[in-house]
Simulated scan of single mutants.
Amino acid sequence: MTVSLILAAAMAWQAGSQQFDLICTGTLESSSTASTTPTATQVSDRAAVDLERGLWCWLECSVVNAIHSRNAAELVLSNKDETGGSAYLRVDRITGAYTNDVRLNMEGGYVIKLNTTGHCERAPYTPIPRAAF
C-alpha cells in the first residue's frame, strides 16, 4: 500500500512538471510597411503548456496549437493564421529569456511585424481543454 502511494505521488509530480503556464513579460517593438518609426510597449502574456500532449494555448485557450519544437535548452511555440501570418515564441528553458516574433499580413500587402524580448516565469497550470470528439 505504501509503495502504491509513493508511486502515485511520483507520477503526479512528473505529470505536473510536464504541464505548466508561462508568464512572459517584456518589451514589444512594432514596425510596419506603412511607418518608419518603430514603437515600444511593455507587455505581459500568459500561455498554458502541456508537454505531455504536445499542446499550448494563450490563456483564454480559444485556439489550441501544437508545440512547434522542444529540446532540453529551448521550447518553441508557434501558430499561423489563414492570411499566412505567424508567431514564434522561443523560450530558453534554462534562463527563461524569450523572444516572440509575430508577422501579421494585412489587406493590400500591408505587413505588421512585432518583436518581443523579455523573461518567462513558470506558473501553476491552467488546463488546456480536451477535444470533445
Rank of each mutant, 00 (worst) to 15 (best):
M1I: 01
T2K: 07
T2E: 08
T2I: 09
I6Q: 07
A8Q: 11
A10R: 02
A12V: 06
A12Y: 02
A12W: 01
Q19G: 03
T25V: 04
T25N: 07
G26T: 13
L28D: 10
L28W: 07
S31N: 11
T33N: 06
A34M: 11
T36E: 14
T37D: 10
T37I: 10
P38E: 09
T39R: 12
A40G: 04
A40L: 09
V43A: 03
S44K: 13
D45V: 15
R46L: 09
A47M: 12
A48W: 01
L55P: 03
W56V: 08
W58R: 15
W58N: 12
W58Y: 15
S62G: 08
V63T: 14
V64R: 03
A66H: 09
A66N: 12
I67M: 02
I67G: 01
R70V: 15
R70W: 13
R70Y: 14
R70P: 05
A72I: 07
A72H: 09
A72C: 03
E74R: 14
E74V: 15
L77T: 09
S78P: 05
S78I: 08
N79T: 11
E82S: 12
S86M: 09
A87S: 15
Y88F: 14
D92L: 12
R93G: 00
R93T: 10
I94K: 08
I94H: 07
G96V: 11
Y98L: 11
Y98F: 15
N100C: 00
D101E: 10
L104A: 08
M106T: 01
E107R: 05
G108C: 04
G108Q: 04
G108H: 05
G108Y: 05
Y110Q: 12
Y110R: 13
V111I: 09
I112F: 04
I112C: 01
L114C: 08
N115K: 12
N115D: 06
N115Y: 05
N115V: 12
G118M: 04
G118V: 06
H119I: 04
H119D: 01
C120I: 04
E121Q: 05
R122D: 04
A123C: 00
Y125D: 02
T126H: 08
P127G: 00
I128T: 07
A131N: 06
A131Q: 06
A132E: 11
